[in-house]
Structures are given as structure tokens and as C-alpha cells.
Design a protein around this nucleic acid. Sequence first.
DNA 1: ACCTGAACACCGTTCAAGT
DNA 2: ACCTGAACACCGTTCAAGT
Lengths: 233, 233
Amino acid sequence: MTGKQFASVWLREPRKTASPGRSRDEIVRAAIEILDAEGLGGLSMRKLGAKLSAGATSIYWYVAHKDELLELVYDQVWGEMSMPEPEDVGWRDAASVLAYSMRSVILRHPWAADLLGRMPALGPNAIQVADRMRRMFKLAGFEGMDVDYAGSTLTAYIYGMTIPEVAWNSTMGEHEYDPDEMRAMVARAVRDFPDMLERMDMSAYDDPQTVRQVAFDFGLVSVLDGLERRLAT
Amino acid sequence: MTGKQFASVWLREPRKTASPGRSRDEIVRAAIEILDAEGLGGLSMRKLGAKLSAGATSIYWYVAHKDELLELVYDQVWGEMSMPEPEDVGWRDAASVLAYSMRSVILRHPWAADLLGRMPALGPNAIQVADRMRRMFKLAGFEGMDVDYAGSTLTAYIYGMTIPEVAWNSTMGEHEYDPDEMRAMVARAVRDFPDMLERMDMSAYDDPQTVRQVAFDFGLVSVLDGLERRLAT
DNA sequence: ACCTGAACACCGTTCAAGT
DNA sequence: ACCTGAACACCGTTCAAGT
């Protein structure tokens, strides 16, 4: 009757390792090195084993399966996000700092974009950020479930902006391409839609990276304004 | 000197198939059937071949690689999204309808959540939606690059809400679990954070599905309010 | 023009066996 | 308690060969 329990590394006792042999920390560190160097597709259990000069399957002693390993590295990423105590700087500044920080952390670890929103974020680092975010929105004046809803709104925005940005970077990075040729092809795909063509002309000579910066800021301000508006009513 | 071109099915000439043999449509239909039934992990080229009672590798005649196939099915998903002409209903209603429609389409094809924001959306259906969205925000009063920024903001929100929702559904679906047991474990993970614990108590007996509905609406209204605010300044 | 099968170079995971 | 290697059941993709 008692169904299988929800699966997360963080919800089960780890193996009480006396200290010898490899450790989870060591494994996670090695995994992140591989991930930063070769991306999510580059991380295999065999390669990780090799990097630790261990048998390919030794890792299964420390971790039930690859997904658990990914949960572990994922929480490390959450640990890199910086968020001031909302009580110190006020909720809007805290929210902005968190947003920019999340974006830059993910851009630094592009593989993490594939985990964002997909993997349960129940590690200590993730929970700490979640907790601060709750306090932030309570400080702002939200109550009850609205604290939650405001939080989802903000993180949804950040995820939704960051994921495509990373995806774009990686497609562009793989095949280095001729920008003019590409513009011509996209223009072709879009040829029946005057508004879309107009858009292409507009942004033709802007630096894509700063455009994305500005876009992120524009949206963030909008989202925060929108949340502020909810407080008034 | 002329680098490799940006890769997308939509940016290259398809094979001019006279008509005999399999067709792309047929392949895409079969692929979607598999995807709906077994999810993204359930779709392999071999299985797809088998379903078409063809050799495992015949598909490579119609498609350069699996990613192209995914681009094709992805655009079908865009085709299911419904969006009224903004001129008919006004920009805010059009935006809301699109948002709800996107959410429900993705919930219907959960595998598509893994493509959202990752795959170039250059198919005719995706472009049509993008075009309407541009017209929508122009109608609202945005100009220049702001039309784009407003669009990114809205889609970022939708992506960022939908992706985790689907992920959650699928983790919950796989292992059917004992809710009490699970709550206990999560409570344990969160034990040092009084605000997080409070949150768990609060939402203890709510139906998760309606909570997510309400959350989606809350955030959407906030985002649209925030965008409206930008028009005023 | 379209399809095939064999082959290559991988995967994650299980498990009996070792120390 | 920790690690190993072999094995299982898969992958996507290439390519020479067939019709």
C-alpha cells in the first residue's frame, strides 16, 4: 500500500562512508569539471570513472544512478548564486541581484540550463535560495499563497529567458557560421511575414550579447513592476 | 571562408520527393504517436523505423539526423497553439489566450517541454505565432526593439512556468508515491527553514493542479500588468 | 530515388566476483 | 565497505550495397 517514495538524492540517507575511498565531493567536483569542459552530453559514467582513475561503475556505490549525480551537481550550481539578505537591501534590489546572478551563473555553466526546472531542486543550496526568496516576497508585502506565486513568477521568468539564451549560444558555438548567409536564410523562412522581416532589419547590426542584456533587463523590470502592482490592489 | 551554415531543417531544401515511398508527414505523424505514448526517451530511430515497418535507418533519407526530426515534430506542436488575431480581441486578451493555450498544448504533449526554448523554432507554425505576437505587441503600443523584448518576456514566463510543471508531473507519474511519506521527507529536507515549513503547512490540503492553475494566472496577470506599465512611461 | 543490414562507437545499469 | 569487469540491452549515425 505504501507506494514507492518520491525519488531524490536529498531525500534518502547517503551511504555512511567512513572516509576512505572516493567521496561524493570528489565525484561531484570531477563531474563538474567534465561538464564545464564538454557539456551535458560529454558527461558519461565511464568518462567520470576514468577521470577518477576508477572502474567505470564504481560511482554506483555513491550514487543510485546518473540522475542522482546530476541532482548533486545541480545543487552546486545553486550554491554559486548570490542573493543578498532581503532585509538588508529591500525586496526589489534583492530580486534583481538574484535574477542577474542566476543568469550569469547559468551562462557560466551552460549545461545547467538543461537541468533548470527539470530536476528537483531539493539540495541545501537550492533550499537556501528558495527560503530567502520567500522572505523577500513576504518583506515586499505578499501573504499566504501569493508569496509562492510571486516566487514562481520570478523564477519562471529567469528560467524562460536563460534557457533559450544558452541554447542559442550552443547552436551558434558548434557550427561557426557566416552571419550574412544565415540572415539570408532566416529571411527566407520568414518571407511571408512583413513584421518579422522588419524585425530582422531593425536588429541587423546590434551586438547580440548586449541586445540580450537589454532584453533581460526590460523583462525583469516588467515582471517586478507587475508584481508590485499586485501589492497595491 | 564562408563558414558552415546555421543548422535547421527549415533552412535547407528538403529532398524533392516525387511522392512515392514514405513522406515526411507520415514520419512526423508516427513520431508524434510514439512521443505521446512513450515520451521523448521512448522515441528512437529504430523504433520509429519499426513503426513504419521500414528499416531502422530509412528515416535518414528524409531527415539529416534526429534533431531535424525533432524540429519537425516541434513545429507541429506550435501548430496546435491557438491565438486569436490581436486586432479582433485586443492585445491583452490575445496574450492571455495564447498563454493558456501554450500551457495546455504542452501539458498535452509533455515531451515538447524538453524542446521548448532549446530547439530553434523556425517552422511555419512557430513563425506564424511569432508574427502574430509581434503584431499583438505593436497593437499594444510597443515600438522598435521593445516589441521584441515584450515578446521575450511573455514567452519566457510561459516557458518558465510550463517546463517545471511538466517535469513535476512526470516525476510524480513515474513512481506513484505515498503523499504523507513524501511530505515528511521534504519537511525533513527543509527543517532548518521556518518559512519553508510554513509554506508546506499552508498548501497541505490544496489540490496541486488547481494551485498551479491559480499560480499560472497570478503570474500571467503580473507579467501583463508589468508590460502595460512600460507603455505608460 | 529510395531502402537495407551490418558495423562503429558509444550509452546507463546490473551483478557476481573480488579484496 | 568498496571496487572491478563482463555483460545486457540499448542508442545515433555511417556507409557500401542493393533495387
